[in-house]
Design a protein around this nucleic acid. Structure first.
Lengths: 110, 110
DNA sequence: GACATATTTGCACAAATAAGCAATAGTTTG
DNA sequence: CAAACTATTGCTTATTTGTGCAAATATGTC
């Protein structure tokens, strides 16, 4: 894994790793229909500007999608992308014991 | 999901969501044998004290396990725990469209 | 005990982050 | 155009975070 991909993954995880942003994600989890920012800022009881900034960060990481709808903006979760990234990491972490060859001469006796 | 669990999940993701810490995790990914901090601090070219602090944060989140071995401490990945948490979130994000009932009267027609 | 090795802690500092409020921008309605 | 509503941006502030160096701690060796 190259430096840049690692950085991107770190950025994704960081975006998810803040309480209010994760609250937004969970809120969107439970919504089939895209929600506007006013609705979302209530779920974590912060100022609208704060929600707006958090949603921007989530959008930059492609975690949420934005569609304009009149004077509103409707946010929805990029479910598949998030799930894919998380599963990829899960597999990497879980299943790479075969990479033990990286270890100098490995375990305890070849 | 209650406030505290959400906070804990956010903390876990935050711990993973920093470049050098994620580097440490990836490094440990490729190691079957537990590694000591000296070895690990090389992988992200930081001071030993920095690696120590990062590893402490990872340990607090139960991402890495520590075993004392003489004057060293050997770190290894808590593979199953990480994978579980990530998959749980993935499923939650991906599969909760059935929760649409939360939406007021849902989609577009009953 | 003196010394070497491995790790952690205290301290200082720069940079990043989250937050709220006020002002601004974009859109719909009158 | 004015007014109402939705969302974003500019500004400031307080807090957190990541970092390196030096000192301290812990352990093993001579």
């Amino acid at each position: 894994m190259d430096t840049q991909s690692l950085q991107q993954l770190a950025d994704l995880l960081k975006a998810l790793g803040e309480y209010n942003r994760l609250s937004l994600v969970y809120e969107l989890c439970g919504c089939e229909k895209p929600q506007n920012a006013m609705c979302l800022c209530e779920c974590c009881s912060v100022d609208a500007s704060v929600a707006s900034r958090h949603l921007k960060i989530l959008a930059e990481q492609d975690i949420v999608r934005i569609e304009k709808s009149g004077r509103e903006r409707k946010y929805s979760l990029n479910r598949q992308k998030i799930a894919n990234e998380l599963r990829l990491l899960a597999e990497r972490v879980e299943g790479s014991e075969r990479c033990a060859a990286n270890d100098d001469q490995a375990v305890s006796g070849g």
